[in-house]
Computed example of a mutant assay.
Amino acid sequence: MSTVFHLALSSDWAAAQAAGVYTVSTRGRSLAEEGFIHASRADQWTGVRDAFYADVTEPLVLLQIDTDLLDVPVVEEEAEPGSGVTFPHLYGPLRVDAVVRVLDLPGPLAPEPPDATGSTATPAPRPAAARSADGSTERSFTATYFSEMFRNAALILLVLACGFGAIALGVALGGDATPGIAGLLGTAGGVVVATWLYRRRGRTG
């Protein structure tokens, strides 16, 4: 599952769930106005939030999108010409069934009342709560991120195990070319199985 993220107002996401598609490009801009929906990779969305949504008082959600479930192109493009920094852009409406998880982001926090010295303290951030696209509560974003990483590593190990297992079988059968051919066939079979598991996980995730 290839994943991208999109910051959305909770009200916009609620409207999209009712309509079946999400058509907001970014804060204050629609898909029709912008031509695409802005998205981010896992290492980018916090910077986008801090730069463009820091003063938003409405509840925000982070949409985790499985690009394998999209029926519109996803294009990596520079945020500004010549910057060298690219972001994923979705060229078409986002179907709600391509959103596999929804993360409730903490809203703005009011400072604590001043103490006797007149200073104020900022409370610790509230933890974010993750929900699936249907609204059920799930694990935190960090737990989800590492879970995906370990699952992907397991799939890679599966492919390697199939390849080496097939090579060992080829050695046992004998012949100069047999190990190499068996290794290629085993690796190909491992890739097929891993791809099937990968896509199945995205659709049930």
Rank of each mutant, 00 (worst) to 15 (best):
M1E: 12
V4C: 00
L7E: 00
L7H: 02
L9T: 09
S11W: 03
A15N: 08
A15H: 06
Q17C: 14
T26E: 14
R27N: 11
S30P: 07
E33T: 12
E34H: 14
G35R: 04
R41M: 10
D43V: 10
W45E: 03
W45I: 04
W45L: 08
Y53A: 05
D55E: 12
T57S: 11
P59D: 14
L62S: 01
L63H: 02
Q64E: 15
D66K: 00
L70D: 00
P73I: 10
A79I: 15
A79T: 13
G84E: 05
F87K: 08
P88A: 04
Y91I: 00
G92I: 02
L103C: 05
D104I: 00
L105M: 09
P106C: 11
P108K: 06
P108V: 05
L109A: 15
L109V: 12
T117V: 12
T117C: 07
S119G: 08
S119N: 14
A121G: 08
P123S: 06
A124G: 04
A130D: 05
S132V: 06
S132N: 13
A133R: 08
D134G: 09
E138G: 15
E138I: 09
T142L: 13
A143K: 08
Y145F: 15
Y145P: 02
S147T: 15
E148T: 10
R151A: 14
N152F: 13
V159H: 02
V159S: 03
F164L: 15
I167C: 04
G170L: 01
V171Q: 07
A172D: 07
G175T: 05
D176R: 13
D176L: 15
A177P: 03
G180M: 10
G183D: 01
L184R: 06
L184N: 02
G186E: 00
G186R: 01
A194R: 01
T195E: 12
L197R: 06
R199Y: 14
R200H: 10
T204V: 10
T204M: 10
